[in-house]
């Protein structure tokens, strides 16, 4: 079985993230990392292979030079190979163009199973997996809280506020996984060393047969009109509890007409 896992390199949420002058996410201002939410996808792929005893995992990322770090991190957790789609023209792509590029790369890899994270931690749109399902014409099961593969079928559990639903589909299929699937493993020292020798290919738009004009900031189907830093919240009143903290809190709530 061939598995492709999508991994995105994102600015670390712990840093002071910001936008560049061209309204795109400033990917140089803050150190990048493999999106934590894609680590869950990596973990599920590794578990699928461990449980079935067979399978080949390729990580796919689209992003600037530094995005290859996300591939190395994933490879240090396990898996076999990486593909990095990098091209100047991709800069500033919206989710529509991102899904176009990723779909072309996935088609080239011909996987049985594609696993994505639930959302990127920078864009947080949570739309790329569904867009890929449409573009690739394969079943997309999103926001899986658990994943199992058996006999050419994928079964997931999806939790909503109303119900917990079990869904089954035949492969090939695409799955996006939530942080409810279980903590991702830490790379071992051996894993980190082994990752250095695993093959990583770099593909350009030309390799995928995509015209540069259809991706990037200029081709985006929505435009940013304004970016304003939210004013920091005014520091409020913080009191130590001297035994009547609850009463003082009630006074505050009364003054705000909440009681």
């Amino acid at each position: 079985m061939k598995i492709v896992v999508l991994v995105k390199h994102v600015p670390d949420a712990a840093g002071d993230r910001s936008f560049a002058a061209d309204t795109t996410t400033d990917r140089a201002a803050v150190d990048g990392r493999l999106s934590e939410l894609d680590e869950y996808a990596v973990e599920q792929a590794l578990q699928v292979v461990e449980k079935s005893g067979e399978g080949e995992i390729t990580y796919l990322t689209m992003g600037p030079e530094a995005a290859s770090e996300a591939l190395r991190k994933a490879l240090s957790m396990g898996g076999d190979a990486g593909v990095h789609v990098v091209d100047e023209a991709i800069h500033g792509s919206d989710a529509i163009a991102t899904s176009l590029v990723l779909a072309a790369a996935i088609s080239k890899l011909e996987p049985d199973l594609v696993i994505c994270g639930m959302a990127s931690t920078d864009g947080t749109m949570s739309v790329v997996p569904a867009m890929l399902s449409e573009r690739l014409g394969i079943t997309g099961l999103t926001l899986a809280a658990s994943v199992a593969i058996e006999g050419g079928q994928v079964t997931i559990r999806r939790d909503s506020d109303e119900a917990s639903t079990t869904i089954t589909a035949s492969l090939p299929a695409l799955v996006s996984v939530t942080d409810q699937t279980g903590e991702a493993r830490y790379p071992s020292f051996k894993g980190i060393m082994a990752a250095k020798k695993k093959p990583v290919e770099t593909w350009s738009l030309a390799d995928l047969g995509i015209e540069p004009a259809v991706v990037g900031l200029g081709a985006a189907w929505s435009v940013v009109d304004s970016i304003v830093k939210r004013p920091p919240r005014q520091a409020g009143t913080v009191i130590p509890d001297g035994g009547d903290g609850g009463v003082q809190l009630a006074d505050f709530l009364s003054s705000g007409k909440f009681i």
Partner: peptide, 21 residues
């Protein structure tokens, strides 16, 4: 840093007192 009003204390003392109040 975000709070308009904060109480530094044990929630098991503060919260029931607030509820009662």
């Amino acid at each position: 840093e975000l709070a308009d009003f904060g109480v530094v204390g044990d929630l098991f003392a503060v919260v029931p007192q607030l509820t009662e109040e």
